[in-house]
């Protein structure tokens, strides 16, 4: 078979591009806010009201800003399954583009903080800050832990940098919100850099068995360590008699 010439390739590419551009121009939903309004009407308005005014347990979305919407949607907390359900992180219900559209729409309802930008940080400073401000709930290894008053702080190992920056300022659920006086933007960047280090080194030295310390370690020592050795002596004893 003959390979297509470069000219043919170019022509094909140009055709494809014009076709996509034409489709996009014909579709009003290409405007993010407009697309967001549609999605909002279908998935959110039932709880938060037609124009985000809030209803019963569902808070008003006016002025919560892009940061809150992006956090709630990208961590899969929203849309909630029931008005009195407890939000928790899971697979997001929307793809990247739809989240951007919904976020743009919620932001258009009025003001509020922007989605924060995350810059490079110093993992060393981040370690000190993380251990001092976050480890008591999320555990030193970042795997999360139960809270004394019920509920749990989730694992941070799969949380994206932007989501961490958002969570620190928003303080979702039982988590306190940290303002810029308590943790500066540079400090938040450092915490994020440190969480990255923890994630990179999570399996340093072998299987991390939950990252929860002596409890799983004791279990492994008894069941696998001593367990295998007892099988060995059972075998040796059987060979002997």
């Amino acid at each position: 078979m003959r390979r297509p010439t470069p000219a043919v390739c170019l022509a094909l590419a140009a055709f494809a591009l014009t076709a996509v551009a034409g489709l996009a121009a014909a579709n009003p939903a290409h405007d993010p806010v407009e697309r967001g309004r549609q999605l909002y009407g279908a998935s959110c308005a039932g709880c938060h009201g037609q124009s985000g005014e809030g209803f019963m347990t569902s808070p008003s979305l006016r002025g919560v800003g892009a940061a809150s919407a992006d956090f709630q949607l990208s961590t899969g907390r929203m849309p909630l399954s029931a008005p009195d359900a407890r939000p928790h992180p899971r697979e997001p219900a929307f793809d990247h583009q739809d989240i951007a559209a919904l976020t743009a729409f919620v932001a258009s309802l009025g003001g509020g903080p922007q989605v924060p930008a995350v810059g490079p940080g110093d993992p060393r400073k981040g370690r000190t800050l993380y251990l001092a401000s976050c480890a008591s709930c999320h555990s030193a290894s970042g795997v999360g832990a139960a809270l004394p008053g019920g509920g749990a702080a989730p694992s941070l190992l799969n949380t994206k940098p932007t989501q961490v920056a958002e969570a620190v300022r928003l303080g979702p659920g039982a988590m306190p919100a940290f303002d810029t006086k308590t943790l500066t933007e540079a400090e938040v960047n450092s915490i994020i850099a440190y969480i990255g280090t923890v994630r990179d080194e999570f399996r340093h030295g072998g299987a991390a068995i939950g990252g929860a310390g002596p409890v799983p370690e004791g279990l492994v020592a008894w069941v696998i360590g001593l367990g295998v050795l007892i099988l060995v002596i059972l075998f040796l004893g059987r060979r002997a008699s």
């Binding site: 340093h204 030295g205 068995i209 990252g211 002596p214 409890v215």
Partner: peptide
């Protein structure tokens, strides 16, 4: 093959900080 007591994650002892969960060896 199996990580045990990852001291680099726990961080140095500092009376002002805490991590949960915190257990001793079995």
């Amino acid at each position: 093959l199996v990580q045990i007591n990852p001291v680099w994650l726990w961080g140095p002892f500092d009376p002002g900080t805490a991590s949960a969960p915190a257990q001793p060896d079995w």
